[in-house]
Design a protein around this nucleic acid. Structure first.
Lengths: 196, 196
DNA sequence: GCAGTTATGGCAGGCTATGCCATAAAGGTT
DNA sequence: AACCTTTATGGCATAGCCTGCCATAACTGC
């Protein structure tokens, strides 16, 4: 891709995704709040300073790991049938991203579980989280025929994101008796009934 | 009220609300991110350690200042006419808390402005914020006839809180051409139209 | 005056995060 | 080969938030 530059100076020690995978293993083993950047640095084999260069903030290790889901969400939102209502379109697109059971999604679920179960991570407001919300806001604005998102679109987009996070939270902490689709349907369904 | 205990040991140096007022003045003067706990401690005249005892976290200085709004919100939600739809009831209650122009609310607005304009504060997920959401979730659950909040109620409550925060954000950063009621109406209106 | 109680404040330490800079490792140039 | 440029690394210092521990201060009751 774009990483095909011939490189001039000293080559990096490792790929960022390798480091992330190693770090996430450690985080899942010990818990996000109970493993320090120093411990992570030792676990993945770089200095603390370098680790901070790969991941500006500790939360980025986890949040950045689901960055690809934003692109997937955007694509899914673009491909939804026009005759769906906005909320149905959102449900369909989100389910398309999180509901499938490929290996990718299995990892994605583990990451989300990590985020959802760690208050510090939920609050962290990472760039990934922002991008995700932006995608939802843009979609809502488009549906409303707005060139630039109004307050209404921003509020709805952000609200939907919150509802989705809530659904994923319940799913993450629930036993095996509920699946993602069910949780998402209930959460977004509640939103749909609000107007009635 | 409940503070009428006869006191045994050493009396506190100051009332927590006095400290909060002093600290908030300093925070509003310099900006939340640009004033350290050390600076605040000096400004209000207590040690850093003691300041941390009054306010477990820096964010609590600001968030705690709008704690009373939770009670106000709960009361307002209790008194809404039953024939209002859920979303109308929420709009009416929230407007009742934030829309009036008493001196109290003027201070409340300043606090909210502070929170809304500071990313660190928005993300902080304070106890006050949690309590506020809890009130909304409980109301939604009650409306849905649930003894204990379901996922749907939790999602809707949290989503509504997000929409409200978005409305307050726009209002806080907007010029003087929009008032709170207008912003809240647009944000919640967007949510209402979602089901259509 | 003495004991018990409560609040304060200093100190040490752990944590995340950033700036600065010397050093290492690669490619290109002469 | 020697040297320069470029890029990455890692160590050091620093700032800031937060907590535990403990000595000390201030007030009440005996």
């Amino acid at each position: 891709m774009t990483t095909r530059t011939p490189r001039r100076g000293r080559p990096p020690l490792a790929d960022i995704e390798e480091l992330r995978a190693l770090a996430l293993t450690e985080i899942e083993r010990l818990g996000y709040g109970d493993v320090s950047m120093a411990a992570l640095a030792e676990a993945v084999g770089v200095s603390v300073r370098t680790l901070h260069r790969y991941f500006p903030a500790k939360a980025d290790i986890v949040w950045g790991g689901i960055e690809s889901s934003i692109e997937a969400l955007k694509e899914a939102l673009d491909q939804v049938d026009d005759h769906f209502s906005t909320i149905d379109a959102l449900y369909s697109a989100v389910l398309g991203v999180f509901g499938r059971d490929s290996g990718d999604v299995s990892i994605l679920r583990a990451r989300l579980r990590l985020i959802v179960l760690s208050p510090e991570l939920r609050a962290s407001q990472s760039a990934t989280f922002e991008g995700w919300r932006e995608a939802l806001v843009d979609f809502v604005a488009r549906r409303r025929g707005e060139a630039t998102p109004s307050l209404a679109a921003s509020a709805v987009g952000a609200a939907v994101q919150t509802a989705i996070m809530e659904a994923l939270s319940w799913w993450a902490v629930a036993g095996d008796d509920r699946d993602v689709a069910e949780c998402l349907a209930e959460a977004l369904g509640g939103l749909r009934e609000l107007g009635a």
